[in-house]
Every structure is written in C-alpha cells, then in structure tokens.
C-alpha cells in the first residue's frame, strides 16, 4: 500500500513539476522543421554552428516536408512553436494568411542557394534525353490526339518519342507535401503540357487537364528520396525524381537524364542552363529574434562564405551557392527586418 501510494504521489509530483518547469523554463535551442531537401544542409549548418559558437546550443532540425514545416511554423508565436521553417518552395499567400491569423506576422525569408531536380534511372538502364513534353505525355491521364483529349495510350517511352529507350513507363514523383512537387509541376509538366498543344479550353480547365496524372504508372512518394530509390530497386524500369545532391551521393546506383539537352551539374544549374532548378530558403519568425538566443547569428553563419559560399561546406554537400552579393543582400534585409510578402497567385 505504502509503496504504491508513495510511487504514485512521486509520479504525480514529477509530472506536475515537469509541466511547470516546462512552462517556466525558456527554450535556448533553436528549433527548425520543414523540407527534407533542405534538411541535410540545415543539419550540417546546425552542427557547424554549434561547434563554431561555444555560447549557443546546437539547433535541432526536424523534417516533415515544406508544407508540414510551414504548417508548424504558422501554429503561433511562443516557445513551443518552431523558430525556422525550411522550404524548397516559396511560402504561399494562403500560408501567410494562416500565419497572420495565428499571430505570426513578422516573417523573414532567407534564400540559401539553389538546387536542381533531376530525373534518374537505375545505372544499368537506358540513356534518357528528356524534353518536358515527354514527361507530360508519360504521366498525364489524358493527352491530346487529333485535337481531342483521349486516355493516355502510351505504355513505353519509345512510343512517346523514338529517341527514347525501349522501356516501360513508370515514374516515382514526389507527393504534394514536398516542395519539389510544385517545382516539378511548374518547370516540367506545365511547359510540357503547353508544348503538347491541348485543344482550346479556358485557363482553369487547362491547368486541371495538365496536372491530372494517371495513377497506374505514376507513384507519388510522400517519404524521402530513399523511398524513391527503393521503388527503383523494386521495379528497375522506374524513373525517379530526385534532388541533385541526393543523386550526386548515389551516383554508383543512379544514372541521370538530360532535360532539354542539358545535363544537370552544379555548373549548369548555377549558370541557369538546366531548366529544372529552384531556390531553397528558410523562413524565420521575427517575433522569436531576441527571445531564442542565437537566431540572428545562425542566419549570418548560414550565409557566410565558409558555409553557403562557393567552395563552402554546403557546396561540398551538394547545394548550389548563390553569389556573394546576393547573400549579403539577404543578410542585410534580414537584419533590417524586411518582411516576406507572398507573390499573388
């Protein structure tokens, strides 16, 4: 009796203490969440930051995809909400509104560099020289034929274009929780759709028709790139969509496709020749600056030459660096408190 009583009282006290302590204790570690594309870069910076600044804790970096991270970011202001959301796409106007409703008004955007999206197949598969229209024809539910929309008849890449290898069509693309998906749609599918010359229809119908994918050969991957890679291993004819840095680290098992005749490399993306690239960024909660120690220093450190610059730590890890001028403007805008404004959709 005594034992049970004593332990349960002890348990309740601990629980109560825990609760009050949590409320009273102020968080002194930067908390980050979001894009799985940015995650490796942010984690590296977090560790280097912890090593370079002895007075600050090492920031904690979570994943959850760009959308998941921004949703957490917009939950409100306070120590039990995250300070920084990593994103591989720009914040949408709707998200800015949701943020404002929860009291998150001071949002600052920092672009850290660029990333390419590559199409890759298993190393022992055929060579692909893709054009956006090929991708569109491979994954659309309906394609135009003689001025009319018909159910997609293609089952083999060589049926779409004779220059493509004789290989069954199967695609593993990122699901909509990934920022990569938006870039994939905007930079590949929509241009491909335009090139396919759909019959006359209004703009909304056009977009719906362009982005309506068939489900039998297209697999949407909600997890990270390793899951996409597992698909390629299970079904060797699958083509997967990856980030350039992931491909770069797995060159022994993957072979990359050229898009519009350009091979994705750090140079071709930095020069803007490769069509499917996007900026990577993170969003900082202005209200947390000065409350959570180290936020300003983290941003400055992230964009410093040794980290995000050419030849810096992140370039080694596969990030395509932005110019020095661009980075210094980003930092000074951040320090001046310039707020993010979503572009109208």
């Amino acid at each position: 009796m005594k034992f049970a009583l004593v332990t349960s009282v002890a348990a309740l006290t601990i629980a109560a203490l825990g609760t009050t302590a949590a409320v009273a204790q102020s968080r002194d570690t930067i908390q980050i969440a979001g894009s799985s594309t940015v995650l490796p870069f942010a984690s590296i910076v977090a560790e280097e930051f912890g090593a370079a600044y002895p007075e600050f804790n090492t920031p904690v970096v979570g994943s959850g995809g760009s959308s998941g991270g921004l949703r957490q970011f917009c939950e409100g202001v306070g120590e039990n909400t995250i300070d920084i959301a990593n994103a591989s796409r720009k914040m949408r106007a709707g998200e800015v509104e949701a943020c404002a409703e929860a009291g998150v008004e001071d949002i600052r955007e920092i672009v850290i560099g660029y990333d390419g999206i590559v199409f890759a197949v298993g190393a022992d598969q055929g060579d692909f020289a893709l054009e956006p229209i090929h991708v569109y024809k491979a994954l659309a539910a309906q394609v135009p034929q003689d001025g009319e929309m018909v159910d997609n008849p293609y089952t083999n890449w060589s049926e779409i274009d004779s220059s493509l290898p004789d290989q069954d069509i199967a695609l593993a693309i990122p699901a909509s929780n990934h920022g990569t998906r938006e870039v994939f749609e905007e930079n590949v599918v929509l241009p491909g759709c335009e090139a396919a010359e759909l019959p006359e229809m209004n703009e909304d119908e056009m977009e719906a028709a362009c982005l309506n994918f068939r489900q039998d050969v297209v697999t949407e991957i909600a997890g990270d790139y390793t899951e996409t890679l597992a698909r390629l291993e299970a079904n060797p004819s699958t083509m997967g969509v990856f980030g350039l840095s992931f491909y770069d680290q797995n060159r022994d098992t993957l072979k990359v496709a050229t898009v519009s005749g350009v091979e994705p490399t750090m140079d071709s993306i930095a020069a803007g020749d490769y069509p499917v690239s996007r900026p990577l960024q993170f969003y900082v909660k202005g209200a947390h600056i000065g409350v959570i120690p180290g936020l300003e220093e983290y941003v400055q450190f992230f964009l410093s030459d040794q980290i995000a610059g050419a030849g810096g730590r992140l370039e080694e890890a596969g990030l395509i660096p932005a110019s020095e001028e661009f980075r210094s403007t980003e930092v000074s805008d951040f320090m001046d408190g310039t707020q993010f404004e979503a572009s109208a959709e």
Binding site: G18, A21, A22, Q25, T29, Q31, I32, A33, L39, S43, A46, E47, G50, N57, T58, V60, V61, G62, S63
Partner: peptide
C-alpha cells in the same frame, strides 16, 4: 510529436530535445 528531428547533442534532461 517532433521526436524525428535531427538532434546533435545528448539531452541533459527529459525537457531537452
């Protein structure tokens, strides 16, 4: 509950990440 975050330090108490 966010415990899949990347944490590069040993938690000193149950309240640390």
């Amino acid at each position: 509950i966010g415990m899949n975050a990347f944490v590069a330090s040993v938690p000193a108490s149950p309240l640390d990440q």
